[in-house]
């Protein structure tokens, strides 16, 4: 149990519709090891965000349970940093104040707070915009600010919901490399949702492919490629092979669920 950081155990979730129940997730079990980088891909509406919301403590599971370090999740907490698809920056706060928001809630001195915020801002390259309001930032800068805000409280787990989805290809690659760099330095456990198969393979130790109706785990694919991941690895035949396998599992899913 000790190396399991996040553990989904027989998790199901349905939402009540007008006259029926909609099964968003059905019997999902998944263990994510400490310091592992897991990416999750799957068709739209297959329950990826719902699954992550449960690990974050924002969504209650219908049945089953989610354990973090062997303890059931009881609501959100600063041990798990969440990066939302819609940035979710506080628009009335500057970049620096956004980054300091979580730090103000922890018992550290003002000097340390400022220092840690500054470090997180430098890490994502927003030093020159530390005192700007979010409305003056581009999409990529907003997302970097959200990442800095999550990093600043130094969570053991990072939950990222399509964080780079809205960015242009160049910014996206830059942020991917930056994320991998900090991950290999600080070795957090990462659960990362994406629509992009290349991104899923490039980042992960393991790729979890989900299927819809009902939302379930379709296949888990190991990525046996060394870190640091480089341009060469991206172009290697092995990368291509894994990417094809993931691609195939996502886009040519057998309609019936492979019963687990």
């Amino acid at each position: 149990m000790n190396s399991k950081k996040i553990s989904f155990q027989g998790v199901s979730k349905s939402f009540a519709l007008k006259d029926t129940e909609f099964a968003a997730l059905s019997d999902v079990s998944l263990d994510i090891a400490d310091r592992e980088f897991v990416t999750v891909v799957g068709p739209s509406g297959c329950g990826k965000s719902t699954l992550m919301g449960m690990a974050a403590g924002l969504v209650e599971p219908g049945t089953g349970q989610i354990l973090i370090d062997g303890r059931p999740v009881a609501g959100p907490g600063p041990d798990r940093g969440v990066i939302f698809q819609q940035y979710a920056l506080f628009p009335w706060l500057t970049v620096r104040k956004n980054v300091e928001f979580g730090l103000k809630l922890s018992p550290i001195s003002p000097e340390e707070r400022r220092e840690r915020a500054q470090r997180a801002i430098e890490l994502v390259g927003l030093t020159d915009f530390a005192d700007a309001l979010p409305k003056t930032l581009s999409g990529g800068m907003k997302q970097r600010c959200a990442i800095a805000r999550a990093y600043a409280v130094n969570p053991e787990v990072l939950l990222m919901d399509e964080p780079f989805g809205a960015l242009d290809a160049l910014t996206r690659v830059q942020l991917q490399d930056q994320l991998l760099r900090t991950w290999s330095q600080e070795r957090r456990t990462v659960m990362f949702i994406t629509h992009d198969v290349d991104e899923a393979v490039y980042l992960a130790n393991r790729v979890v492919v989900m299927a819809a109706r009902p939302g379930r785990i379709y296949k888990v694919i190991d990525v046996d490629l060394p870190y640091p991941r480089t341009e060469e690895i991206r172009l290697s035949p092995e990368f291509g092979r894994i990417r094809n396998e993931v691609w195939h599992s996502v886009y040519h899913q057998a309609p019936a669920a492979p019963v687990a």
Binding site: L58, F84, A88, F101
Partner: peptide, 21 residues
Amino acid sequence: DKTLINAARVLGASDRVIFLK
């Protein structure tokens, strides 16, 4: 915006802090 409230909650904010901040 619900995501702003969630963003504060995952940073460890209590109901009181969420309300005020």
